[in-house]
Design a binder for these strands. Structure first.
Ligand SMILES: NC(=O)c1ccc[n+]([C@@H]2O[C@H](COP(=O)([O-])OP(=O)(O)OC[C@H]3O[C@@H](n4cnc5c(N)ncnc54)[C@H](O)[C@@H]3O)[C@@H](O)[C@H]2O)c1
Ligand SMILES: NC(=O)c1ccc[n+]([C@@H]2O[C@H](COP(=O)([O-])OP(=O)(O)OC[C@H]3O[C@@H](n4cnc5c(N)ncnc54)[C@H](O)[C@@H]3O)[C@@H](O)[C@H]2O)c1
Lengths: 231, 231
DNA sequence: CCCACTTTGTGCGTGCTTTCACAAGCGCGT
DNA sequence: ACGCGCTTGTGAAAGCACGCACAAAGTGGG
């Protein structure tokens, strides 16, 4: 008997907004690198590929950090968004499943730049365990609990085959990790309070295929669409 | 308020539904492998991790393929969803940028099983061009147009560094590819009629961090609410 | 000091999504 | 043949999300 009251939760920032903040942040940092001091919602929205009213509304959820007639101060906004997203602290990440994908992730340098530190790599294959990948020793999956504790892991990445993913997720949860990023093509079952996000290549391709097919079906004879926006 | 162009709801399957169909499909194929002949919306919804009413409404967009009192015939539903998603035909995929990620994608066997065939790999680095990855020769990016034409590529995957992504996207579009899957952390600018989907690791991690921080704020020992925001 | 101009913050209408709730449909046992 | 229990398909309601349009708020020139 699970009591499921809707969400009397004091809803802070809408999920749709949270999902866009990282995009804004990236655009802002590009501006910052270019030495821009302030930016209007119109320009920032252009860089982020969204409607400017949407951007302003999104930012308004963080507070009023803009100046009418001027725009937003880039540096300050970077700080505010970073703080809101929790990027002012470091997050320790463990990757389980050091195969094709796991290795690519481990070798990817783009994480560290945002406060995410890959703290550990784990695998079950004796062939892989003990090897060094991206300057880290691959540990055996049996050490998961120890590693999580010792390294203070708070985000778990699952890059194992589908069959092993649920088991690994369970161990992560058991060990106290309540944020999981899952690359395996399965629906993970986790208790309330654990946050799972999935990245699923195959689904993305299928969605593309759907739209491509629809275009092909309907547009039999070159239906042209005029106009492109987004400057 | 007078005469609005009647909703062009012809082929209208809601986007949200389209995004879930692949999940249902996968769950159904698992059932099929297990020899299950029929399944109720309740059970299938459980396997797919969604609400059963939502699942029924989603399926109702494809037509009425269920039997009241019984459920859905697994095999038939697999076929209907596959057809709707356009998986009954083959899709030719080209991957550009054969680095860490591109190689992982190329070596990933899970695509072929769904009608996606990796037809070509392209890169700009002379060091990489000419090598064989996953039984395919890596071609030089200059051949993109030829490859697209010769192999009938209809889906392009971009796994290059951010700086090169827009350029590659433009060439894909120019060559007639109107479905693009982008792994580079940039907002791509493409004309109307071109479908871009992005997979962005860094964004996923940042969203996880946001929720993790929120949990930590609220869950704090002793402090129920640790002061929200600064008004 | 005032005015013309710029840009933010947001009220509001519109349309999409989710969820509930239940009548209608189907199979089975009697 | 009939009713009972199960399950679908779908109105209707509630909740979100988006984007327009505009007042409010700020800047700078004269
Ligand atoms: N490679 C890709 O591009 C790609 C694309 C889409 C999805 N995926 C998914 O990502 C996952 C990984 O893909 P991959 O290509 O890297 O597979 P892989 O087979 O190359 O690697 C999987 C790794 O997980 C390890 N492993 C297996 N069971 C384990 C367990 N219980 N605990 C710890 N480690 C375990 C294996 O030893 C292996 O090293 C799969 O679920 C796959 O479907 C991969
Ligand atoms: N590796 C990961 O796990 C990971 C994770 C998240 C995002 N990404 C993103 O995916 C992209 C690829 O990552 P990676 O780790 O494979 O990088 P990488 O540097 O290993 O590989 C990039 C490849 O692209 C090639 N390339 C560069 N410019 C090109 C051009 N104009 N045309 C064709 N090929 C070109 C390079 O020669 C190289 O082989 C990057 O944008 C990265 O930010 C990667």
């Amino acid at each position: 008997m699970i009591s499921r009251p809707p969400r009397p939760r004091e809803r802070g920032i809408p999920d749709a907004t949270v999902a866009r903040l990282p995009v804004y942040l990236r655009a802002l940092q590009a501006l910052q690198d270019r030495g821009t001091a302030t930016v209007s919602s119109e320009d920032l929205a252009g860089a982020a590929g969204v409607n400017s009213a949407k951007l302003r509304k999104d930012l308004s959820h963080l507070g009023s950090y803009g100046t009418r007639g001027v725009g937003y101060e880039v540096e300050y906004l970077v700080y505010q968004i970073s703080r809101e997203l929790g990027l002012t602290q470091d997050w320790s990440v463990a990757i389980v499943g050091i195969g094709n994908l796991g290795r690519a992730l481990a070798n990817y340098g783009g994480f560290g730049t945002r406060g995410f530190r890959i703290a550990a790599l784990l695998d079950a294959d004796p062939e892989v365990v003990g090897r060094t990948v991206a300057s880290l020793d691959v540990r055996h999956i049996d050490n998961l609990e120890d590693v999580v504790r010792d390294k203070g892991v708070s985000i778990g990445v699952i890059a194992t085959p589908a069959g092993s993913a649920q088991g690994v997720a369970g161990r992560f949860v058991e060990a106290g990790v309540s944020s999981i990023l899952n690359f395996a093509p399965v629906v993970l079952n986790v208790p309330d309070g654990v946050d799972v996000r999935k990245v699923d290549l195959s689904i993305e391709l299928q969605i593309l295929a759907f739209h491509a097919q629809r275009r092909a079906d309907g547009d039999g004879r070159g239906a042209e669409r005029a106009g492109l926006e987004v400057t």
